[in-house]
Structures are given as C-alpha cells and as structure tokens.
Design a protein around this nucleic acid. Structure first.
Lengths: 215, 215, 215, 215
DNA sequence: CAATAATCGAGACGGTACGTCACGTCTTCTT
DNA sequence: AAGAAGACGTGACGTACCGTCTCGATTATTG
C-alpha cells in the first residue's frame, strides 16, 4: 500500500514546495492530544476517537486523516513523538549492575504515566499488526540493540560465557517484566526487578569465581 | 457490582422457576459464534460486532445483551466456554520434565487456532480491565495453581530449595513465553521452550550434584 | 379475518366450559389500566404500550393478546367499558332547549378527563380504520340515532320543516363542536355551544312565528 | 425552546458560513420521500419509519435527525413543503359564491391524494401537540385569514351584518366539512358542500331582501 | 502584486454499529 | 384451560463515530 499520505517528512527528491505548508502547530496539537488521552489512564485504544482527538486539538478532522491513515498510525506516531529518550544502559563495569539499573529505569516508565500508552499499544497491537510492528521497531528493538552491546561487553569481560545465546538471555530478562506488566497478576516492584536480574544472570554467569573454576 | 444480568448460573437463593427458562441453544450458539469469529485469525476484538455474533447465531441482539453486559464479558465467557481442558502437568518424577512437557503443550495451544483468541483477549484486556481479570482468573490462575503444586513436589523431592520463591520462578518460566507470543520479535519454537526451561531450572538446586559440593 | 380471539363475550351456543374460566379481574384491570393511561392527559395513542398496560394491570402480556388482537381493539373496548352513559337528550318540549342541553353535556365530557380518550381514539382512528369504525358505531351513532328522534319530535311539533335534511342538520350542529375540539384553534366554551345552537337552528326554523308568515 | 436544530432557514444573525453547507438535495429527497409515503394511502403515521424515509431518500439516518427533532416535525415540514398553494378565495362579488367555490376546492383536496396526508396529520396531531400546532399555523390559519377577508368584503357589501362573529361563522362553515372528513360517517360530496354553504349563509343578512322588509 | 495551490477550521454528508425498547410469540410452572 | 412470569427472534429507535466531502479563509511560492 503505497499511501499518498506521508507520515514522515517529505523526502528530499520531492519538491514539497507549492501551496500552504503543513502546520507544525496542528501536528503537535494532534499528537499531544492523543498522548494526553492515554495518559489519563483508564481509557483504552477502543475509546480513542479521532473525533475527540481533533476536537481537543482544535483541528479539523480532515487534518488528522490527511496525515495519518488510521488510528494505529496516529497512536504509534504519538508514542514515538513523546517517547522517553532517557532509557539507556550505563557502563559501570559490572554486567549485573548495568542490566539492573536499566531495567529499573524501564520499570519506572512502565509504572508511570507513559506506561499506560505502552500497554495500550501492545494491547491494540494484538489486533493491528502495523501497530505492534511500529512499537517493536521504535521501542523494543533499539533498546534490544543496546542491550546486546552491554551483553557483549559482559562476554568480553568474562562475565558471560562466549557461547551465551543473547536473544534468549534478553527474553529471559525482560519477558517476566512485561509478563507482570501485561497480566497484572502481581505487582511489578523494584524488588522484583532486582531479584529477577540476579536469578537470571546467576544462571548464566560462569560458576561463581569465589568458588573457583571447575577446570 | 450486583448486576441484574447473571452471566453465571443462578445462585441457589434465587428460585429461578418463573417464566420461560433461558434457552441453552441460544447460549451455545452465541458463544460458539463468538469463538468462531476469532479462530478465523486476522480479525481483532474491535472488529467483533455484537450485531454479527447475534446474526450468525440466529439469535436476537437483545438476547446477547440480556446475558452479557458488554463485548468483553461475552468474549471472556466464550473463551472459558471453549477453553482447553487438556493443559495439565504430568507427574514424571522430574521437575524439569514435568514443566517442560506442560509448557510445550501451552506453546502448542498458543501457536494454534485458539492462540489467536488468547492474544486478542490479552490485547483487548489492556483497555478493558474486566476482560483481563476474567482471563487471569479463568485461565492463568488455575494453571498457576497447578504449577505451584508441581513446584512443591519439586521441593519435596529436593529438586528445589525450600526457600524458593515460587511466584517468581513461575514468572521467570512463563514470562518469556508470553513475551515472544505477544511481541512477536522471535518465533516461539519448541526448541526455545526446551532451552528456556533448562536455563531457568538448571542450577536451582542448592548444590549441583554433578559437580560435587564445595566444602 | 375470522379471528379466534373473541373481543366480545362468547355467544350462548358455544359451551364455553372446559378449563379455567376467563378472569374477570384481569379483564377489568387491563381495561382500567388502559383508560387510566389516557386520562392522565398528555400521553397519546402511540405512547400506549401493551407492555405497560399489562405491567400496570399486574397481568401477563399474553393475557392481553389472548383477548384483544391489537392496540386499537383494546383502546376501543376500554373506551366502551368506561363510556359515559349519561349523555341523553332531555324532552323539554323545545327543540332548541333539548339540543342545547345535550350539546352542553357533550362539551363537558369532551373537556373533561374522558375527552382526551375521545381525541386519542379519533386521532388514531385516522390511521386505523377499525378503531374509527368502533368509535363511530359505539359512540357517535347511538347518540345520532337519539338526536334523530329529537329532531323528528321537532318536526312533529312544527319547529322544523318536514323537508329538513336531518343528517345535514346534525353535521351542521356537531361538526363545529368537534372541529374546535380537534383543531384546538379556539376554546370550546359553553357560550360557543349556546350561540352555535342558536345560529344553526335559527336557519332551519320556519320563519319566526312572531313575525308571521310571508303569504 | 431555543433548539439548536434549525428547521427553518437560518436567521440573518447567524453567519451561516462555516463548514460544509446543508445539502438541498438531501432536504428535498427527505421531504419528498416522506410525502410519498403518505400519498400511497393506507399507511398511517405510526407506520412511517425514519429508517425507511432515510433509505428511500438515499440519505443517512443521522441527516434526518440533524434537521428534524422528531417524526412530527418532519411530517409537518413535509406537508408544508408540498402544500397546495392553489387554495384561494375568488372574488366574484357574491359572498356565497366566493365561499362555495373555495370550499369545493378544499373538498377536492381532502378527497384526493393529499387528503390522506391531512387526515394523518390531524390524527397524529391528537397525540402530538407540536404536529397539530404546525398544521394549524401553516395550513388552517393562513386560509382562515383569507376567509376573514372574504367575510369582511361581505360585510362591506351588506351581505353580512356588521355584528357578525366571523370566527364562529367560519367554524359553522368548515366544521361540518372536517367532521365528515374525519368521522367518515357520510360521504363528503360536492352536493353536501353546496347545500351546507347555503344553509349557513342563508338568512344571515339582517333582512332577506328578496322577501322584503317586515316594517 | 496577482495568480496559483495546498492546508487550515469547520461541519454536513452517507454509512455502520451501537445499546434500548416494544413488539407479538413461546414456554415454563401455578391456579 | 387460563393465569403470571419472563425469555425468545424481530426490527425501529435515536446516538456516536466513521472516513469523505465541501465550504470560505489562510499562507506560502511562482509568474
């Protein structure tokens, strides 16, 4: 579907010159009104209406449809627009420390205002492949790439065996976080994060150095 | 919430004798038509229309609304109605075996027809607390209770330390499964299940027998 | 349409014996609840609901349908059931007096509680021939027959010419009453009745005796 | 009642410039489809369905509700929209002639296609004050105003006494027409009109010239 | 500077599904 | 057999949003 509606800025080869230029005010107002809707908690993807988004942004409905083909695209863009940039891995020299600290940051986000947007997107994404893909590409994957770097540093330092399956390890680390976040059967506390990091990494660490190696 | 609309069977204190009794045919037709809708894959919770459910079940719309207050309740009931009963833990004498086998069954379900219903419910549940609660109570929790039993057998057998946090352990086991199931960043293969079980359950024993004690 | 549902009481030749006899209580309750509905003023035929009639009469809906084929029949019966019997022509020896007195009684009814039922029936009757016919046969015609008698007495007394068209005369007398009653453009006062009787009868009376005949 | 839904054309104080303008095509299609429904005879006000009106006009249901608050308003407007304009009093120099001719026109309309609309409106109007009022203001009253003019000419010409109660006289003239039209107990023939006009207007003159004065 | 062109706000349009209500029928048990 | 209770399939109700379509007004570039 080569849509005529450019979600991103016009590419350089397209003149993009005639007529009134797109209103930046409108764009921001729309994205913000979308974010605001979710951040109030309680409301879900289904309850989000373009009609209301437009009204709250003091924008014509057509202006929304001109730039976003559907609700999913709008929500994905809104999320990216407001995405927290400050979610990074430190480099303290200790794998466990690095991972734990980053996961604590993640959990803080998930439990905060912005967290609701994440669950809404993941939820709606189950019925809207586009939305899920967008979330994966824009949120999960970049962080995963960085996490891979952290793991490789761990391997280099000898904290992890060279044979470790990093993808598996990341799922083992983050899976239970999202599990509790999405199923809500138990609270997602910092204590849980702490203890979970230890649980998983303890299993992949080479045998405790203090006890001596096995060979 | 003392709703007038009893989704469950009438409690004993209600005479339940006056008037025409509820049609069992209608009830089944409605639930089946709901299930069928999701099992076709592709369609999401938003696309499910009470109007269509009623029509496909050859039932009046009002009959649906008489017994289910909203779409979420209907879907939850439909899921429970068709819920796979054959998802149980064997008792092979080996914790790893028991858990692995049950998780393989679970993954088979998640990857099959019924799996789509699960993702739809979990997805919609992010915006409909009632739906999520229903799914948790009816699907997750019963299995979790059984799993707890299996773990306790493991403790009794000495495969797990008495101090183990079973809730945490279950999240460590199942979280990554659901993570891959919901985020879809990597395929949810039997190999992954196998290897993940090993990862989490290995070295849980207070002392790995094959390596001998340290003192 | 030889309906199985007898609106009138069973004829004598029908045994009418098997099973539980029709409940007189139910019949009265239904008719009364129907009348009561209209007498509150404000509510119209369209707003009358069999559901509500049954509920207010503490009667099963089916019991209403068993005895009355439709709303029109029910309303017609209810009207007949509660029909004022005290609408008769006096015989004072003076045509003008007789007619005036009866018309004043009629107007009193039309302006009272029961009047609303009349307008409702006439109104609904415009779209339900059966209802209009019922009202005509049960209310208009009997009175008209009596009026015809009064007129004939007038002819006998020499108050009216023998050539008078009684049907026309009655329409000239009652038409304007119902006109004001139904169109509501002017109030239907006793003064109007008084003056209208004089207007019409003055035109059909033989030339005023006090002035003597012309030849 | 300062309704937001303007049934009439926008008043001058309203800019009426923003947004897409109201579709004249839709307005006409709706009114015509309403009229057509009644002109088929047989069907009554109750049977008229907004759903069907909209469908037959190839118009969204919401468009009907946007401009007319209820069925009554729609029917009233439809009637006004198609209202016969050619119902006027001639000025032949003779009161009896003028009135007779106009009443014959009226009766022709009442007995024709459009007559059914009139009876439907008057009927439904008995339960819907708004509808009755609309009919009175738009149909009855304008004609009555004109009739008053005709009567006043009669007074000027000496055909009527200056003291005549014109309202009463008009009711005496038109009441019986509508009486027969609504009760349907006798046919509404041109002969009846002819003879009724004569009845009411004869001897209205203070002194019948043809017979000479009495003193 | 005027013409051109795309966007803006506003809001009406033809639709679809909503959740409710009453219809007239039915099925049960009770009287 | 008739009663009350109340669930049934049906279909219209009036509402809310959908995504599209005019409008007049605005804001840039181009001739």
């Amino acid at each position: 579907m080569a849509s005529k509606k450019p979600t991103v800025q016009p590419s350089a080869d397209c003149p993009r010159t005639l007529g009134r230029p797109r209103s930046e005010r409108a764009r921001c107002a729309i994205l913000n009104s979308t974010l605001k809707f979710f951040e109030s908690r309680q409301n879900g993807y289904i309850d989000l209406t373009i009609e209301e988004v437009a009204a709250r942004a003091a924008v014509g409905k057509a202006t929304v449809y001109r730039w976003w083909p559907n609700k999913a695209a709008l929500v994905a863009d809104a999320f990216a627009f407001g995405a927290t940039q400050k979610l990074h891995f430190p480099d303290t020299g200790s794998l466990v420390n690095d991972v734990t600290q980053q996961m604590q940051q993640l959990v803080k986000i998930l439990r905060g205002r912005r967290g609701h947007v994440v669950s809404v997107i993941l939820g709606a994404g189950q019925s809207e492949p586009m939305l899920l893909t967008a979330f994966r590409e824009r949120f999960i994957m970049p962080r995963r790439a960085e996490a891979t770097g952290t793991m490789q540093r761990g391997v280099a330092r000898g904290e992890l065996p060279a044979s470790v399956d990093i993808d598996h390890l990341l799922d083992a680390l983050y899976g239970p976080i999202y599990f509790r976040f999405l199923i809500r059967h138990k609270e997602l506390t910092p204590q849980f994060v702490e203890s979970h990091c230890r649980l998983v990494l303890q299993r992949v660490l080479p045998v405790d150095k203090s006890r001596g190696k096995n060979h």
